[in-house]
Amino acid sequence: MKVAVQSAPFDLGAEVEAFTSGAEGAGAVVTFTGIVRPDEGLTAMDIEHYPGMTERAISGIVEEAVRRWSLADALVIHRYGSLKPGEAIMMVATAAPHRGDAFAAAEFLMDYLKSRAPFWKKESRDGGETWVAAKDADEEALKRW
């Protein structure tokens, strides 16, 4: 289990390879990568976080996933700071004996990271800056778990 909160970019290929080779007993690895969507006019995405609570909250979410599903391993990397459109913001990877658990756990991690990990996104456009508002649908998504 690995949780990393960092401003530096990560090497997706190297991370997936290291995670896969380290996941003993896994028959399935699922990965998800979140990318700054290159929306029209968007020049940058600034991600603020709450150092200390962020690592704690993400670790708690990963531990919960490990309790609920039969996982060989799980990984979360989430960046903060100023990112450009097209850059990777975060990734999750889950490894399990069978794909059902790996897919479900990856979705669970994403749903919880979305509204329970203390990150806040601010978009910069030519006209100025706006904080991204949380969506009701994101909160609603937690109910299915």
Binding site: S115, W120, K121, V132, A133
Partner: peptide, 10 residues
């Protein structure tokens, strides 16, 4: 104590 808007991770 920390105050903040609803979180927007992921």
């Amino acid at each position: 104590v920390a105050f903040f808007p609803p979180m927007t991770g992921g």
